[in-house]
């Protein structure tokens, strides 16, 4: 069996387990390549029927406009249900407080909004596109990850996961995060996107953009950023390897403007994917800390 078929088959099995085991699942959609891949896998899992759960997008308001455009077209083309909850609403209602200063980001505020959405809409399982190879705390994550009513991840109390027998049993108030593409690497996702000819937002390919440099990273210029006087804005040809909040996603200089050259570039890359994520650079355990708080 070819390795992409193996991974695809494993992921479809997991997605179907979610539909079979839970009453009200949702697919966490960020507009990034991993969640787009997840949508394709879910399509395959239930074809010719429609995907039997909605997409949930936690909108920070600091998105790349290209991502939102892409999201809306995908939802329309596939006839999917989309639920959006806004970080801005939580700020306006005083539930969360916007960070201040040069490194201000809404990435952390997402968690509160996500947990509220889960409670409000009664989702018992949320499918996410996280992968174990992304980060060392994620390497320890289960495929079915049980969270308490505060959304917390307790690394020491994880259920052992044997064979392909996934235990989705939960108490009232708890929910499960499910990661069907746990075993995929960045390169696997790209090879699959190429094989399946899946459309992705244009910012993954080389383009000209206004950027500035900070701490050795190239960040996209936007009005959401608090840019200091000595940080000069210039135009460069770049692309993005991950797509998150505009304030914490760094670009890489690149001329890779189609999928073949992107794959070639990643194969030879000496910096890991999340090396360009400001949110992970806060400390060595930034990801683990966020996951404990209910981050996906």
């Amino acid at each position: 069996m070819s390795y992409l078929k193996y991974l695809e088959s494993e992921s479809i099995h997991i997605i179907r387990e979610v539909a079979g085991q839970f009453k009200k699942p949702a697919l966490l959609f960020s507009g990034g390549k991993d969640s787009i891949t997840l949508v394709r896998l879910a399509q395959k899992a239930f074809f010719p029927a429609k995907i039997p759960f909605p997409l949930l997008h936690i909108d920070t308001g600091h998105n790349f406009p290209e991502t939102i455009e892409f999201r809306d077209k995908l939802v329309k083309d596939l006839g999917l249900d989309l639920v959006v909850r806004y970080v801005q609403d939580a700020i306006d209602q005083g539930k969360v407080v916007e960070e201040k200063g040069k490194y201000a980001s809404r990435n952390y505020l997402q968690t509160t909004v996500l947990l509220e959405a889960i409670e409000e809409l009664g989702f018992d399982a949320c499918l996410g596109g996280a992968r174990r190879d992304e980060e060392k705390a994620r390497a320890k994550e289960r495929i079915f990850s049980v969270r308490d009513e505060f959304g917390q991840w307790d690394a020491k109390r994880q259920r052992p996961e044997l064979f392909d027998l996934y235990n989705g049993k939960i108490q009232f108030g708890e929910n499960v995060r499910v990661f069907p593409i746990s075993n995929w690497t960045e390169l696997d996702v790209w090879n699959y996107i190429r094989q399946e000819q899946i459309g992705i937002p244009s910012i993954y390919f080389a383009h000209k953009r206004q950027v500035f440099e900070r701490d050795g990273l190239i960040l996209p210029f936007s009005t959401f950023m608090n840019i200091e006087a000595d940080e000069k804005i210039f135009e460069a040809t770049v692309r993005f390897r991950t797509v998150g909040d505009m304030t914490c996603t760094a670009a890489v200089p690149s001329f890779a403007d189609d999928i073949d050259t992107v794959i070639e570039e990643i194969s030879e890359a000496t910096i890991s994917e999340r090396g360009a994520r400001v949110d992970d650079k806060r400390s060595e355990s930034a990801m683990e800390e966020r996951k404990k708080q209910g981050y996906f």
Partner: peptide, 18 residues
Amino acid sequence: GLVAEREQGITIDVAHIY
């Protein structure tokens, strides 16, 4: 991958490596 593992210098949980 976990803070407790690095602090104690032991591996607690199964890690997946690719």
